[in-house]
Design a protein around this nucleic acid. Sequence first.
DNA 1: CTGGTGCGTCGAAGCGCTTCGATGACATTA
DNA 2: TAATGTCATCGAAGCGCTTCGACGCACCAG
Lengths: 334, 334
Amino acid sequence: MTTIDDVARAAGVSVSTVSYALSGKRPISAPTRARVERAVRELGYRPHAGARALASQRTNVLALMAPLRVDVNVGVIMQFVTGVVTRARDFEHDVLLLTQDDLAGVDRVAAGSMVDALIMMDVEAEDPRLPLLRRQKQPAVLIGLPRDPQGLSCVDLDFEAAARLAVDHLADLGHRQIALVGSPHLVLERRTTYAQRMVHGFTTETARRGIAGLFVPCESSHAGAVDAVDRVFDQLPDVTALIVHNEVALPAVLATLRERGKEVPRDISVVAVCPEDVAVGQPQPLTAVDIPAMTIGSVAVDMAAARLDGDHPAETRLLSPVLTGRESSGPAPA
Amino acid sequence: MTTIDDVARAAGVSVSTVSYALSGKRPISAPTRARVERAVRELGYRPHAGARALASQRTNVLALMAPLRVDVNVGVIMQFVTGVVTRARDFEHDVLLLTQDDLAGVDRVAAGSMVDALIMMDVEAEDPRLPLLRRQKQPAVLIGLPRDPQGLSCVDLDFEAAARLAVDHLADLGHRQIALVGSPHLVLERRTTYAQRMVHGFTTETARRGIAGLFVPCESSHAGAVDAVDRVFDQLPDVTALIVHNEVALPAVLATLRERGKEVPRDISVVAVCPEDVAVGQPQPLTAVDIPAMTIGSVAVDMAAARLDGDHPAETRLLSPVLTGRESSGPAPA
DNA sequence: CTGGTGCGTCGAAGCGCTTCGATGACATTA
DNA sequence: TAATGTCATCGAAGCGCTTCGACGCACCAG
């Protein structure tokens, strides 16, 4: 292994000069720096990460805790992860991957000084990881919105605003009876809060605009989708628009509409709330509010970075939703 | 931060005794060990990962390079990753996640002593990472089979055997005209070698058994599937069985068969080569050769571990395929 | 009673780096 | 010409741990 000593010797300077030449934390004359750089190149020198971490109290590694179950939302998770890893590199950081259920991992990597900061995906309202995180010296960024974010940074899509946006889009097209086909019961009850936030935004906005709004949960399966659609027509027979916030059930919802003889958007408009690629990947490109998973991941890294090299306090950032009109929404039928 | 010094002081022993008590590398009397453990618990002591790495030349971290693109095979990738991360914990290791395209990452984490070993997914025949890997001191494990594995461990499903297994299953059921609906052109041409291995196994086994075998590539889209099925019926009109080795196109292939008036398995048998959950998740449970992604991931870790604490040389392990009969295969029509 | 043998423990070196204070060379000002 | 300041570089301490050799003690055989 070639060490900083080897480089110093080769360049004919002291070890500290090499260090400063490479870090730029003190001025080094151009010729000296050139000699150092040359030696580095010729010897193929790489600083030893552990030694550096020991001396500098910085590891240049981020922990990312991700739900590694093999479930249906895998696409979105992957996008988050990609966003985090990619952006981390912009800050010269690598990413250590932990599984969601590895509670002990929080202590292991944080108390063990393996990482500079932690990013947690899929945060629930009363997430058991929060107390662990709060007692670490490293900053943490949550993707999602717990009930009490005290001391922790959070980032997520503003789902309330997303619901409003979707409702407004449809209301402006003349729709007066709108249904929200949402998350499965389980998700609504005890998990991440985005489902509740979505419903809340939907309810208040329909109320505000004097529109008939119906919310039906929807299990993530074909049968669940059929069931949900049937419940909608049952309870709101004159419905003219659907907001679908369930990526998995989306294709089945669309198929069911077709089976029921409803043409989109002539008979009924559909606004999806899902990642863009899902919206455009359907048989018919869908008007949709984008869930920018990758962006959220990279913002999470930005927030972690901000807290690392600065006194930046914890903050909560809700990303403004964007609605893109495509072929699935149109004027309400007369 | 509490250090090993604090623990030593609290337990009334020397630093080295604490170290030995915790690592077990030298005998420590029971009472002393108890005092040390008590101090550790009371102080909440965690060894500093960097210091430990510096002194011991071990990081207890594995690098995993994964294709983080958001493509269709995301499910399998997730399973690999899960297998790796989970198994790594059994060996007291954490996982550092790199993206496939981060070539520089290999040097960064290996030469920089950030990891004890590297695992690379999705290895191509002439993978540009191989030369980089060979010059590192850390062992590497490849998931996939490059043309020249010299010095590197490899693990993958034995796709040749998988093809044979599928052919034999069908041949034993009396089928004499079998088509393989495979990977897209792109994959076949320049990428991971599993596609070629599959085709090779298929070709030789059909030949050996005197069966008419037709291979058609298949793009990973609905249109691609339709096209592939049409080509099959075009070039092999009396075909009675399909082997489908394209997870993405699978549903579309099935749908197309139905549209063409072919009932499975009455008119035509289908054997899939895909992860189990995909096979059973279809409208009709499919007879399939499992692609055990998670197992492959965990075997990769086992191989890395073996090379770490032992003189184990590099080896190549091909996992024996397993075929599970379900409802999509039956006797050839008379 | 002596010399040898283990066992349990200690002290110190060293892993490779960062960083602080000190130093020397040189230019600037009074 | 001496005092002052600036800039580039050096030396050494120290980050927290592992590990090697040494040491003291109890025990046993001779």
